[in-house]
Amino acid sequence: MRPKKGDFKKVKKEKNYYFISGGILVTVVTVFMLVGLFYTPYDSEAMDLSLKFAPFTLAHPFGCDQFGRDVFSRVLKGSGTTFLVAAGTLIIGGGLGTLLGLFTGYFGGWPDEVLMRFNDLVVAFPNILLALIFISILGPGKYNVILALGIVFIPSFARLVRSEVIVHRDMDYVKSVRLMGGSHLRILFVHILPNIKGTLFSALAIGFNNAVLSEAGMSYLGIGVQPPDASIGRMMSEAQAYIFAAPGSVLFPGLVMILMVLGFGLLSDGCSV
């Protein structure tokens, strides 16, 4: 029997709901953070004691804190800083880690061995603790946090990419390219890298979350991002004592973080499906 015209349409690709819902959440939060980098409705540090603990109004949608600062502006600004730190961390940690993993996984040999032993060593330290060591050496501040977290994130990316590259290294398609005379660099960046992008994106999404959580944790402890830079973590530690008077300045930064972590978590699950 000849198939009818409509028959083929029924076989639809199943929708990846994790990816879609994660993508939407991430887009919303990222736009919010990017806006915060460049624009806030009020000056995030402007104090106005007449507005102390002001309730939620149209002019101040998240209310005002103990110094009469607009919480909405502060959350925007803090999210912007957080985004900057997380993105910087990923560029350093993810970028260098991926490069290291690609080369050591592909070429093997003693650099691979050394890297793996070093990796075992670093894994012994919890992320945030390692970052704290670097901070205690470098001193606190936005850029030092980026540097510290970036360095701390390198090994995990290197290890992940390495294990993927080892799988692909001996596959037939790589052998074919080699026979056709493709250089090692071409094999690595044009052929292997695109094939491991699913795993890599998934790891980057999780890495972004970890970077945000670590930064917030460090700033909460008071040894991360320093004034005058606003930070979600520091906002929460400052506002914690006034949680009933100005609930907004604790709840909204927390909410932004939850939405973001949720979004990237879903996105990561969607990538690895």
């Binding site: 944790g217 914690q240 949680i243 927390g254 972590v261 949720l262 978590g265």
Partner: peptide
């Protein structure tokens, strides 16, 4: 949802 809540926010 639980995994998305940062530890110190949960503490607060």
């Amino acid at each position: 949802f639980v995994m998305a809540v940062p530890g110190f926010f949960m503490g607060i």
